[in-house]
Amino acid sequence: MDTRLANTWRLTVNEKRFIETALSSGIRIDGRNPFEYRKLSIKFGREDGSSEVQLGQTHIMGFVTGQLVQPYRDRPNEGTLSIFTEFSPMADPSFETGRPSESAVELGRIVDRGLRESRAVDTESLCVLAGKLVWAIRIDLHILDNGGNLVDAANIAALASLLTFRRPECSLGGEDDLEVIVHPPEVSDTVD
């Protein structure tokens, strides 16, 4: 874990006592009751595959894109799913610009694991031409404000973005019926 982020978890004796007293009294710093959820707001963007999630004071934007790529050799009939997280320094003073921190990478892994294990994305349905072309789905999560509970907010943003994502329809054509034709969204309903 990032050293600066890890250091924020070291508490003084007074801080620990304050937390224990607050918990036993049934109060939280943000004024919520012990079992009260953070307020959730989900906005879907104008573009397919985009969403904006606010969970309490945490604010995340999600974007899903797809492109045709060659499949991995050991999975010729499956597309791919990748999660990328970006921690804005404006979201939290402990976040830095540049390469993704260990915390950003770990958050991406947690979201990735949740999507894969829940089978939210059927990677076999992303196959266009076995062994030749599959869809590579990329989810970008931009943390704009860190008000706590990043894992839940990031998972919700990823799922909300996936809900609105429409991969283009493809068909095979050409002389040998092995040329992949990608159809724009406005004509995809008529593709057989």
Rank of each mutant, 00 (worst) to 15 (best):
G108D: 00
G108K: 01
R109G: 05
I110F: 04
V111A: 04
V111F: 01
V111D: 00
V111I: 10
V111M: 04
D112K: 06
D112F: 05
D112G: 00
R113M: 01
R113W: 01
G114E: 07
L115Q: 09
L115Y: 06
R116M: 12
R116P: 01
R116G: 05
R116C: 05
R116S: 05
S118W: 06
R119F: 03
R119K: 14
R119I: 03
R119V: 00
A120Y: 13
V121H: 11
V121R: 10
V121A: 11
D122K: 11
T123R: 14
T123Y: 04
T123H: 07
E124N: 10
S125Y: 05
S125D: 13
S125L: 13
S125P: 08
L126V: 06
L126K: 05
C127V: 10
C127F: 06
C127P: 06
V128H: 08
V128K: 10
L129D: 08
A130H: 10
A130C: 12
A130E: 15
G131D: 12
K132N: 15
K132H: 14
L133N: 15
L133H: 15
L133W: 15
V134S: 04
V134P: 03
V134E: 02
V134G: 04
W135D: 11
W135M: 14
W135L: 14
A136G: 05
A136D: 09
A136R: 13
I137E: 01
I137R: 06
I137H: 01
I137M: 09
